[in-house]
Nucleic acid binder design. Structure first.
Length: 419
DNA sequence: TCTGGGGTCCTAGGACCC
DNA sequence: TCTGGGGTCCTAGGACCC
């Protein structure tokens, strides 16, 4: 991108974020081996592990049961996404004090464009230390900070600074910094690419720079070209190459559920699809998105996974339309009687508004939309369980309410005051 | 080891149109 | 008749990230 003036980019990455937040809620966890993500005997993987647990080989994405074997005395804690979102908000607020260009890359990491802030904050290393201190005193959370002339360098830098450190890669030192690192340290190089590179005799980033760009392009396509740039420390290609501070709209919204035990019971499968459809629909309404493509995902017990999508004539944000679509896709594609491990519902292909609305005669669709928005509102006020369009996971039979949606929102409003 | 849930981006083939 | 090529949309799958 802009080559005239080197940028100063910070990558701020919170240390063991989920674990640290859980420790703030329960200080007795401090210093112990802690595993966040579920109970030791549950189907699931580790979301985060404390440094004490990592010493035993526990790491994120590892099955919980494996973690329990490696570290039997670890404390297993369920994850609390709301808590992490809350603290993520605090973190974001702190970061905004240091730069007008802040971009949260996920719940626990952010990029800051610090170019031109020297007059205000001094040299990068100095402002990084101030940021580090402010973060600690304001949130009681540790972070690591990487400083570089590109997002890539900053990101790799913060990883090398962990835990609780700051690392500045001086301008023009990028290639030198990267050369001895493992190819796997480059963001975007995962297990598969690593293996292919190893087969080519490439182990370190420095080995990559000795290859011609076009050789990499031939082997890996577009991605190979980007990889060649990354090896030099450039923000080559795609998202990396964008300005810091452009929070973009989501491209898809999805929810999925893995059963604790596989099931082939049609009632259960249907009610799960209904519940997932409601969750997706709700978020479409909250965000003001109208989806044209609805996708079903299902996984059998042998882990084979399929996706089946359908694009609607008109975009939607209605639970029922989402549900009818995935239900049909499921019945068309499920090998009847085969136990299901996971179901998922995804909405994508967003449009600004519904493709067509009948403005003269309020359509069924519009009435539904109104009813659902009112229902969402009641849920916000009284809690998720105050209204049930479907019984979802709770089992039992679904009420047939299609014909009289307007009756829904008022249905239970007078019951129980919030706690 | 027995594998979550939320996303993004890329590839590739087929349909369809000009 | 047995053949082109580009563009766009749709669908399915896979690598990767946190």
């Amino acid at each position: 991108m802009n080559t005239s003036m080197p940028r100063t980019i910070f990558h701020v990455d919170m240390d063991a974020f989920f674990v640290s937040v859980e420790e703030l809620y329960d200080p007795s966890l401090k210093g112990k081996p802690v595993v966040v993500g579920g109970q030791r005997d549950e189907r699931g993987v580790v979301s985060a592990a404390s440094y004490a647990a990592r010493k035993f080989g526990v790491h994120s994405a590892m099955p919980l049961r494996t973690a329990a074997k490696l570290c039997p005395h670890a404390v297993f804690v369920d994850g609390h996404p709301e808590r992490y979102r809350e603290y993520s908000g605090h973190v974001h607020e702190i970061l905004c004090r240091f730069s007008p260009q802040v971009e949260m890359a996920s719940v626990d990491e952010a990029y800051l464009d610090m170019t031109g802030t020297e007059r205000l904050h001094g040299l990068p290393l100095r402002s990084a230390h101030r940021l580090h201190e402010t973060m600690k005193s304001a949130t009681q959370l540790n972070c690591s900070i990487g400083i570089g002339t590109s997002r890539l360098i900053a990101k790799v830098g913060s990883a090398k600074a962990k835990p609780n450190g700051v690392l500045w890669v001086l301008p023009a030192q990028e290639a030198k910094f990267l050369a001895p690192l493992d190819v796997r340290d480059i963001p975007g190089v995962g297990k598969v690419t690593e293996k292919k590179l190893h087969e080519m005799g490439i182990e370190r980033v420095g080995d990559l720079t000795r290859l011609e760009d076009r050789d990499l392009e031939q082997r890996f396509g577009k991605w190979g070209l980007a990889l060649a740039g990354k090896a030099r420390g450039e923000d080559a290609g795609g998202w990396f190459d964008s300005e810091v501070g452009e929070d973009s709209d989501p491209k898809s919204i999805s929810h999925e559920h893995t059963y604790n035990e596989d099931t082939a019971e049609l009632d259960r499968l249907h009610s799960t699809l209904m519940r997932l459809s409601e969750m997706v629909g709700r978020r479409l309404r909250e965000g003001g998105y109208f989806a044209r493509t609805i996708q079903l995902k299902f996984r059998y017990k042998d882990f084979t996974t399929f996706t089946r999508a359908h694009s609607l004539e008109q975009s939607t944000q209605l639970d029922t339309e989402i549900y009818e679509t995935v239900r049909r896709l499921f019945l068309q594609n499920w090998k009847t009687g085969t136990p299901i491990r996971l179901l998922g519902v995804q909405a994508s292909n967003f449009e600004a508004g519904p493709s067509q609305i009948d403005l003269l005669e309020p359509s069924r669709q519009q009435r539904w939309q109104k009813a659902l928005q009112a229902a969402d509102h009641v849920r916000d006020k009284f809690g998720e369980s105050s209204i049930g369009l479907a019984t979802g996971m709770k089992g039992g039979f679904r009420e047939r309410t299609h014909e009289n949606p307007a009756a829904l929102p008022g249905k239970k409003t007078e019951r129980k005051e919030p706690g």
